[in-house]
Simulated assay, not measured.
Amino acid sequence: MNPFEMVVAIVVVVMIASVIKARYKLHGGDGDPATARENARLRQEVDQLKDRLAVLERITVEKENSLAREIDDLRNR
Results as ranks from 00 to 15, higher is better:
59 I>E: 14
71 I>A: 09
58 R>I: 06
9 A>K: 07
46 V>D: 05
56 L>F: 09
60 T>W: 12
23 R>L: 12
64 E>G: 02
52 R>N: 06
34 A>K: 12
5 E>P: 01
73 D>E: 15
34 A>W: 08
12 V>Q: 10
66 S>P: 06
47 D>T: 03
57 E>C: 05
46 V>L: 14
62 E>I: 12
2 N>E: 02
22 A>D: 09
5 E>S: 14
12 V>S: 11
76 N>F: 13
24 Y>P: 01
27 H>N: 13
51 D>H: 04
22 A>L: 08
9 A>R: 08
13 V>M: 13
42 L>I: 07
25 K>Q: 15
70 E>L: 08
68 A>K: 14
38 E>R: 15
9 A>S: 11
68 A>L: 08
29 G>C: 01
23 R>G: 03
49 L>A: 01
30 D>Y: 13
3 P>T: 12
74 L>M: 07
61 V>M: 11
45 E>H: 05
55 V>Q: 03
24 Y>Q: 10
17 A>E: 04
33 P>W: 02
55 V>M: 01
34 A>Q: 11
31 G>L: 00
45 E>W: 01
69 R>A: 15
24 Y>G: 05
34 A>R: 10
69 R>G: 14
19 V>W: 02
21 K>C: 06
43 R>K: 14
73 D>Q: 15
33 P>G: 01
75 R>V: 04
30 D>H: 12
46 V>C: 05
13 V>A: 10
7 V>C: 05
45 E>S: 06
8 V>H: 05
46 V>M: 13
18 S>I: 04
31 G>A: 00
70 E>W: 13
46 V>H: 07
10 I>Y: 09
2 N>K: 02
12 V>E: 14
33 P>K: 03
18 S>T: 05
1 M>V: 04
62 E>S: 12
58 R>H: 11
66 S>V: 10
42 L>G: 03
3 P>R: 09
35 T>V: 14
54 A>Q: 07
64 E>M: 11
65 N>V: 13
72 D>P: 00
53 L>M: 08
71 I>V: 08
67 L>P: 03
8 V>Q: 12
7 V>E: 14
49 L>S: 00
47 D>A: 04
74 L>E: 13
56 L>H: 11
51 D>T: 03
29 G>F: 02
42 L>A: 07
75 R>S: 07
52 R>Q: 11
76 N>K: 13
44 Q>W: 12
42 L>C: 00
69 R>Y: 15
12 V>C: 06
40 A>N: 06
46 V>R: 15
63 K>D: 06
35 T>P: 03
15 M>K: 09
67 L>F: 15
42 L>Q: 14
63 K>L: 06
31 G>Y: 00
33 P>T: 00
47 D>H: 04
40 A>P: 01
24 Y>W: 13
57 E>R: 09
14 V>R: 01
68 A>V: 09
